[in-house]
Design a protein around this nucleic acid. Structure first.
Lengths: 127, 127
DNA sequence: TCTCATGTAACTTCATGTGTTGCTAGAGTG
DNA sequence: CACTCTAGCAACACATGAAGTTACATGAGA
């Protein structure tokens, strides 16, 4: 499948797709080929890859919208608050990643097919 | 203490301070007075207010940097992923708020004083 | 009446993520 | 060999939301 087609399905731009897929390729989850007839192909087993793997392949973007204004500070109040927050956020991060680590692409795939069957529609891309 | 002084201590602007403190005032955590000699005064017991209370008084801003692109979608793949993510994020939110709910301002206050003692310095504002 | 404070709306700035353009390089086709 | 189709990539443009700023109104002492 080409970046072009994926972009249409995702309502976005081919370049954005390539940017994202680049991370997945580096980790061997997908393979890309240039030129005529090229595009992207899956190169992993869906039950061996989790949302956590995807997240990490995508360079582990920021998870939280909140956080310390600065890691280093002279202010003892800020220091106390930072310490409290850091602990909580670290734990939350660990919990999130653990949960993501339990969700395989195979599970999502199965879920998708179940929804598809419920809708009595043929399997096509959204757009 | 005036918004002006707080802003200096926080390296920010008096108006930003007022915006934030406004939420705290509405919940009765602080009290403000206009005019000469006015400013902000604490009006709660530190051991009765938690970070969670503060968070909610501040109108519960977004916690996560990640999330569904759209709640409603025609795309069954997106739907499956959204469902998986929503569950995880809801749990993480609950966990975070629970943790914040256990951290009282009194605890932070005590932590601050401990750091202060360790530094053998008098208690002053950062700036 | 003057000064000092908050209250608030409107605007500006900044950071970040997303989208876009333009170009390069590789790979099949005629 | 020229052409077309594809990814790769850098550079730029745009959108969004948070933070900061300005300007002015209001209230409260001095």
């Amino acid at each position: 499948m080409t970046s072009e087609a994926l972009a249409r399905a995702l309502n976005t731009n081919p370049v954005v797709v390539r940017r994202l897929m680049g991370g997945l390729r580096e980790h061997g989850y997908v393979h890309s080929e240039k030129g005529h007839g090229g595009g992207w192909t899956l190169s992993c087993q869906l039950d061996r890859v989790t949302l956590r793997d995807i997240y990490e392949a995508l360079d582990a973007p920021r998870l939280f919208a909140i956080g310390n204004r600065s890691e280093k500070t002279e202010c003892l109040v800020e220091e106390a608050v930072n310490d409290a927050m850091s602990g909580v956020l670290a734990d939350a991060t660990a919990q999130l990643l653990a949960r993501f680590g339990q969700i395989t692409l195979a599970a999502l795939h199965a879920d998708f097919h179940q929804r598809l069957a419920a809708r009595h529609a043929p399997a096509t891309l959204c757009k």
